[in-house]
Every structure is written in structure tokens, then in C-alpha cells.
Write a protein that binds this DNA or RNA. Sequence first.
DNA 1: CGTGCGTTTGAGTGAATTCAACGGCTGTGG
DNA 2: CCACAGCCGTTGAATTCACTCAAACGCACG
Lengths: 229, 229
Amino acid sequence: MLMRPTPAAVATHSPRGQFVKSELDINSIAGSMELMGTRISYARNVEIFGEGEPAEYLYKVISGSVRSCKLLDDGRRQVTGFYMVGEVFGLELDEDHHFSAEAVNDAVVLVVKRSAIIGLAARDTDIARQLWAVTARELQRVQDHMLVLGCMNAKQRVATFLLHMALRGSEENEVELPMSRQDIADYLGLTIETVSRTMTQLENDAAIGLTSSRRIVLRNRAALTRLNA
Amino acid sequence: MLMRPTPAAVATHSPRGQFVKSELDINSIAGSMELMGTRISYARNVEIFGEGEPAEYLYKVISGSVRSCKLLDDGRRQVTGFYMVGEVFGLELDEDHHFSAEAVNDAVVLVVKRSAIIGLAARDTDIARQLWAVTARELQRVQDHMLVLGCMNAKQRVATFLLHMALRGSEENEVELPMSRQDIADYLGLTIETVSRTMTQLENDAAIGLTSSRRIVLRNRAALTRLNA
DNA sequence: CGTGCGTTTGAGTGAATTCAACGGCTGTGG
DNA sequence: CCACAGCCGTTGAATTCACTCAAACGCACG
């Protein structure tokens, strides 16, 4: 059971918007989407949108990183995902957001009007399919994470997390963690102390090296992978 | 950490198909979908499709109930969801299923060719939107369940589960559970013993009544709801 | 050089697990 | 019709893993 009396960072809005001309990206929604976008900067821990707020926009990380969360009434928090450069978040079927999003560190986000995209999708079946694809991929990611939360012990959770982060980074065997131990703990359903202890344990096992608390070297990928076997 | 040496029921296919003419349902994909469907019966614990198998079909529960699961290599299992009468499951963006589905008890399922639906969606934007809606609703459901798996203690998990099941059933304050304690445990990330103990604990608290092990009366809804407060 | 935040480490506790036995229901076969 | 086997669920005892509470550490910043 996780209980933290002090809820996670309460954030206030401080967006400084500026327009952008274009930015092609074939991996995401079509390039045409980018033409409609606006770039907004968010400072560390600032809320991008809140649970229950109208879902006016769709977002894509340009720089920095973002976390999505759900809060329980008593302040307990579940981080439902992290979004790194190039990843899309905040897409909703409903009119309202069902989770909140916050900047993990100073971040720039491309913001596109949801109504515009939905409008496009009504005419362009390719856009419609890409909207579906964004949601379906998110579903897959979350389903995979259910295995972590439902079945794994602390060591397995942390190992899985590090391996997953390594895949998303540029370097082969080195991970730069943008988020705090608290963020990781809330993502993995553990406490900050357990995450910390598990990291040092993995270091003692010679599975990883801790260059700094946010910079991790994967020394023995096989050992990490073996944990979930 | 959950470890069961014996993996969940290994099932073999035993579908006895028969055609169906039509069945209107405005809540789900359009009525036109139903026209293309075939009904198939599955015996208790029989696999409907397996993880990694090609996702040829889309499914809807006609009678009985279905569970979807993900398996870890060592036999640990996460039940990712239960599907009751009228609910749709097995929709994938990819060509392959990312989880398996099994009949919880004897069940009849409406089966529709995925390619047919996708084909329709390419021409009919309303169908396309409904495809998206099915996936998006599933995403919401799974995200809500992350809060359970990541933040809640045993009592809260079981209470949340019972309240959720009550919403889906026909009776107001009585729940008929189609699934075993093992299924519930694997869904809630607990052991079968903990689920059982928690149920009797809730009974002692006068929050529920156990008519039989599968039949539960919600005596004090407020107390159950208060648990996740 | 002190202050503050994030992280690590330690000691003790507790909730859920493991291991084990028992009870009850169902279906089958004598 | 009863006896028994098998399955499912419950209960008990002991253990363990992660949590809570507490303190110390290191680093960045004023």
C-alpha cells in the first residue's frame, strides 16, 4: 500500500506560447497536423492539462519530457506514463481529459486543436486511422505496464523500467533519466525508498552502474532481462 | 510477488459455429457489423484466441463472460479485463493479438472479420470513429485499473472490483461473479488467499454479504466507496 | 558557508505472501 | 443411495518483501 500524505507537486499554468510554421514527421499524425500546431513551453512540474478539464488539444513533445498522472482523493498518485521527445499524448475520445499531464522538466510541446484533427479525420480516412493508431498504441503500452504492476516484484519492476527507458534513448547502454525517484516510484507502484534501494542493489549485482542518480549505465543487460523471465 | 507454478488453464479450441442473421445494437459498432457476424460457443476455460496469434476477428459477448490475459514466461498471469454480455473485445490495430482471451464460463461470442470492419471504416467515417471509440474506451478502463494495481491495498482493490461488477450487473445491490477467485486474484494483482480473506473481512465489517462464494450482496455501499477515498 | 531539495541508507513494522490443512459442494461410480 | 474423488474456497501459521519512520548524505544555489 502506498500512502503519501503530501500530494505531488501542485502546479500552476505558465505557458508562453509562440507560433511554429511547420515540422514534418511521418511517424506521427500526418505532416498536415504539424502545420496547425503551436509551440508552448512549460516549466518543470507545471501542469499542461488537468484531469476533468476539457480536452481541447492534442500534444506532442518537442523537447523535454512529460508525465501523465491520475490522482486518488487522498493524494496518492499513479503516473500512467512518461512521454519523451517525439511522442504524442493527451488524445481523448471524450470531451474531457481522464488524466492530467505535467512537465517532468522544462519542456516544449506542440499543441494542436483537437477539433481540427477530428474534423480532418471526418474527411481523410488516413488521418482517422492515425488517430486510432495513437490510441491503440497507448493501449498496448498501458496493457504491458499492467503486467509490471500486477505481477512483478521491485527488482523486476525497476529492471523493466530501465530497459524500457534505454530503448527510447539515443545511447545504447546508457540511460539519462529525466524524472525524479518519486516519479519513477509512482509509475512503478513502489515507494521512493524502494526504488532507491533497488537501484543500489542492482548496482551491487553489477547489473547497472550509477554514474549519477539520474545517469545509469546498463552493465549486464542479460541479467536485467532475465529478471522478468 | 505472485508466483504460481501451475499456469492457468491450457485450453484447446472447440468452437461449434453457427450463422446468425442479425442483431441490432446501437451501443456497439453499427448494426451493419452484426450482419457479418458468426456465433461461436466456447466451453469454460477454452481459449478464444492466443497472444501472438493473427487478429483475424473482432468479438462481442452474446452470453457468458470472457477474460483477457497476459502471461509471463514463468506462468504468472495478469488478467487484463473481464468482458460481460454486450461488451466488445479482441480489437487490435496490429495484425496480431497482444493478449489472449478465454471463456470464463460457457459462452457464446459473436465473431466478425476484422478485415471486413477495417474495410468498412475506410469508406464510412462513422464506422471508423466507432472503431476508435472501442479502443479509446478500453484504454480508459485500463488506465483506471492502473490506479487499482499501483496505489490500492487489498481491501480497496476488492471493494473497487465489487462495486465495478455491481454496475455492470442487472441487480442493484447484488453481484453474481462468473469468475473464480483465481481469476479475481490475477485481475487485482493479489493471491487467491488474500482475495478470500479480504472478502470475509468485508463481510465481518458488514460491508458485504456472501450468499455463496460467487454471489455477493452489497450491504454498505458507502463503506465500500469510502475505502478508495 | 549555510540552506534546501533530492537521494540514499538504516531500523523496525506490517500487509500480503507462502506453505499447509481443512471444509464444502458436485458429480460419478459402486 | 451413499461413498469418494476432485475442485474450489476458506482458514491458520510463519515468513518475507516492501513500507514507514527517521536520519544522514551530497549537490546546487543563493
